[in-house]
């Protein structure tokens, strides 16, 4: 075989969307954990909580305003994350980096609001079934959010090296896809556990 052609062979065989595909599959797995957690939550509530009884203990106070505000902030962070992908695909470096910085700021804000809300709720783990279920679901959510920070941070750092353009933005797209997923996960878990209860 012609050596020059041999050099071309490797890259041609590797799909450019590999990381996006793998991230999408991983998101499917993470989403099914949430489906399982919320399925168990609803199932146990239907089984254990009788009409008129307090499924959520009286001493627990849920700050709805903060949680909804955090959700809106999370949605805004999703928009700015998508903005950075849009800019990255077009090789607009300044827009990409500004979008990422704003995304991180908004992300830190909504994580902070979530942590503040949890601290004001008086949830004592081990005191009842609702507390344990809520702790598990919310703890998983916080782990997901921190994971999405790390993933987006790594891919953003990588893009600082100029890894942009239609093909080069795939890693950033993957991380932003995961970021969008955590925002949806936040909405689903907060809605079921703290709003519908």
């Amino acid at each position: 075989m012609d050596p020059e052609l041999a050099l071309e062979t490797g890259p041609l065989k590797t799909g450019p969307r590999t990381q996006v595909t793998a991230t999408a599959l991983a998101i499917g797995g993470f989403a099914m954990v949430i489906a399982g957690l919320l399925g168990f939550y609803v199932s146990r509530r239907n089984l254990v909580a009788s009409p008129g009884s307090n499924w959520v203990p009286d001493e627990v106070t849920i700050p709805n305003a903060q949680l909804v505000m955090a959700m809106l902030t999370a949605l805004m962070s999703s928009l700015t994350a998508q903005w950075s992908v849009w800019a990255s695909r077009r090789n607009y470096q300044a827009h990409t980096y500004v979008g990422l910085v704003v995304t991180f700021l908004l992300g830190a804000a909504y994580l902070n609001m979530l942590m503040f809300s949890l601290n004001t709720m008086n949830i004592v783990i081990g005191q009842g079934e609702w507390q344990n279920l809520a702790f598990t679901a919310t703890g998983y959510l916080i782990a997901l959010i921190i994971g999405s920070f790390i993933y987006l941070g790594l891919m953003a750092f990588r893009s600082l090296g100029g890894d942009l353009g239609p093909d080069g933005s795939a890693p950033l797209e993957s991380a932003v896809l995961f970021w969008h997923f955590t925002v949806i996960a936040y909405a689903a878990i907060i809605y079921v556990v703290y709003i519908v209860k």
Partner: peptide, 16 residues
């Protein structure tokens, strides 16, 4: 990928 994570959810609840 869509079925084993449900077992992980089982384990999370069980662990807590």
């Amino acid at each position: 990928v869509v079925s084993l994570p449900v077992m992980i959810a089982n384990l999370l609840f069980s662990y807590v």
